[in-house]
């Protein structure tokens, strides 16, 4: 037990060290690399905190999509480093910021140490109600039954963020393809990876998605893997991003939330409340919602990384 604690302490120190590096390092690119490593470390921490569902999410999003997004941006903005350094605040501001940070940390630490023991928990309540949802993974039950509203709204949040990213397109490029066009050697190493990995990634992504009903996993994690595979193919030049004016794209982007809402309102008739499921049909309906959410999430997550539309498609 003490050995495990020693491992945890070194892990915590490593997390803090990398976080400190991200803040302190001079150039942005180095900070971004640190952030990718940080995401991977957090996945380890989630395992130590017995939260495998969160670890999967962190591994897929923190270690994959966020890193790729930031690396691309940092490489493009390299020219602004000097100007940013000139704006760096003086010693007084830094001192005040440090005092503020330390004060907040200390206050929060007191709060953490003062948390009640035994801790309040909803785990027994969730366990008691789990059987009525038909799913075996309590996290999935929370996401799609007890607090389905949050999940529905989250799908809309992601979509709204995508609209925000699209709104940054120049007017002439509206309806066009996101991101710059890739001209990549079709026989290069990158293309090779993008030919081999995606089919396997589809199997793994769908596997993570499918087991989510009963074991750690789920739609967000699976969708992130699939989105990453699609981006890989795009970046290797083997496919292009779709023009955002395409009707099929728009339909797939909204199908998940719309099916979710439809099943939710159907619940008002068949089960007495919006987002309730009739007795015995809970699991199939939950799976149906998740299946409908998959294409929406895959496309939204990938297009969020791909960025604003920049050019019209080649005829």
């Amino acid at each position: 037990m003490t050995l495990a604690l020693a491992v945890d302490i070194s892990l915590a120190l490593l997390v803090l060290a990398v976080a400190g590096w991200i803040i302190a390092v001079r150039d942005t690119f180095g900070a971004v690399i640190g952030f990718v490593a940080y995401g991977l470390l957090l996945a380890l921490v989630w395992i130590r905190l017995a939260a495998p569902d969160v670890a999967l999410t962190e591994a897929a999003i923190g270690g994959g999509l966020t890193g790729a997004l930031l690396i691309g941006a940092a490489a493009r903005l390299r020219g602004t480093e000097a100007a940013a350094r000139a704006e760096y605040p003086g010693a007084l501001t830094r001192m005040l910021a440090a005092i503020l940070a330390v004060t907040v940390t200390a206050a929060l630490a007191i709060g953490v140490l003062a948390l009640p023991d035994p801790a309040p928990t909803l785990a027994p309540a969730a366990t008691a109600s789990l059987a009525m949802t038909g799913v075996g993974n309590p996290v999935t039950a929370v996401l799609l039954a007890f607090r389905a509203m949050d999940t529905l709204l989250e799908a809309i949040v992601v979509l709204l963020a995508l609209l925000g990213v699209w709104s940054l397109a120049p007017d002439r490029a509206w309806g066009g393809c996101p991101g710059p066009r890739r001209l990549v050697d079709p026989d290069g190493v990158l293309a090779y990876l993008a030919r081999l990995l995606p089919p396997i990634g589809i199997i793994v992504g769908l596997y993570i998605f499918w087991i989510g009903a009963d074991l750690p996993g789920g739609k967000f994690q699976g969708a992130t893997i699939l989105a990453a595979m699609w981006l890989l193919v795009i970046w290797a030049g083997l496919a292009d991003t779709p023009p955002i004016s395409r009707t099929w794209l728009r339909i797939l982007l909204v199908i998940g939330p719309l099916v979710f809402i439809a099943i939710g309102f159907a619940g008002a008739i068949t089960a007495g409340a919006v987002l309730a499921y009739p007795e015995g049909y809970a699991k199939p309906l939950i799976v149906a919602i998740e299946i409908a959410l998959m294409p929406t999430l895959v496309l939204t997550l990938a297009l969020l990384v791909a960025g604003a539309p920049q050019r019209m498609p080649l005829q």
Partner: peptide, 16 residues
């Protein structure tokens, strides 16, 4: 095997 594939391709890409 996945890590190996990643290592082999990334190694080459980085070398370039």
């Amino acid at each position: 095997l996945f890590a190996l594939l990643a290592g082999a391709t990334v190694g080459q890409l980085m070398a370039r």
